[in-house]
Amino acid sequence: MDGYIVGTIIKAILVLAIISALAGFGTYIERKILAFMQRRLGPMHVGPYGLLQLAADGIKLFTKEDFIPSGANKFIFMLAPVITAATAFIALAAVPLLPEFNLFGIEVRPIISDLNIGILFVLGMMAAGLYGPLLAGMSQRNKWGLLGSARTAIQFLSYEVVTGLSLLAPIMIVGSLSLIDFNNYQSGGITHWLIWQQPLAFILFIIAGFAETNRTPFDLLEHEAEIVAGYATEYSGMRWGMFFIGEYANMITIGFLAALIFFGGFNSWGFIPGGLAIILKVSFFFFLMLWVRASWPHIRPDQLMWLCWKVLMPLAVINVTLTGLWMMI
């Protein structure tokens, strides 16, 4: 029992350290890839190929003055970034990150807590993460912030239904809510991946996932051209940084969810071992998010609501109905 507790604590610390480092590194990758797609160089001056830009940004974020606007609700203003960052990491607790492996004769399962309702827990925690932008915008007494949090509310109420309904069809096929069961269901190789059975569900899920992580084309919450920086207008320094660590951690979580549910998870893929396979898949989804950001303009809030309620939700309901009929016959 004691070994279990110590092991869980070690896993939690490792996940926290590695994912937050990757989230920081993600900002560098994002700038490099966007620069490549727009025929620029991106960060080049600090270190070889601008690799130390990350350290420079870290120093800047940590040493910047941390101010709280005078009219703001101080406690909630300080709490909001913590909510975003914390829920992003709590959501990762129920995600199996790598296949099981042996370390010094001990069998290690790289999942912090194997809940039998893993998917719902991850989605619920990521949903709770949207309280960060909402509270940040409302507490700062700034009209751009308020507009940002109003957009958070409508974005949340739009995509949340689509996420749940799109995942319902794969859940019906597998008959379990545990992400490990999803992975084991697809262990028969590339033809057993759920994407071939549920292509529509995957497309709906990835669109809702973009809305969930505020990526372009759904980055309404802080769109610079319209509402300054939205919910993050009055934030500076590390508090601002925590919003972005949370956002990038959420991008990684969505990548893991897409890989586990639709793309065979951490089963070995031909000659590629399982651990490497899932890292490649998650990297691809991360790249996809940057690729879409470079290719598409963002849409208006009313277009997002129209898309979610009038197009995606009926499609998701039809998909669930057809899957049910197909399973009965």
Binding site: G71, N73, F121, G124, M138, S139, S149, I154, F156
Partner: peptide, 30 residues
């Protein structure tokens, strides 16, 4: 009761979010 716990989480996160939207319309939040 893991399932009920998660249902509580998902349902009330959404429900209170809708309440925030009304609060934003009718009151000065700060």
């Amino acid at each position: 009761a893991d399932f009920l716990g998660v249902v509580q989480l998902i349902v009330y996160v959404g429900a209170v979010m809708a309440l925030y939207a009304f609060g934003m319309m009718f009151f000065d939040a700060t």
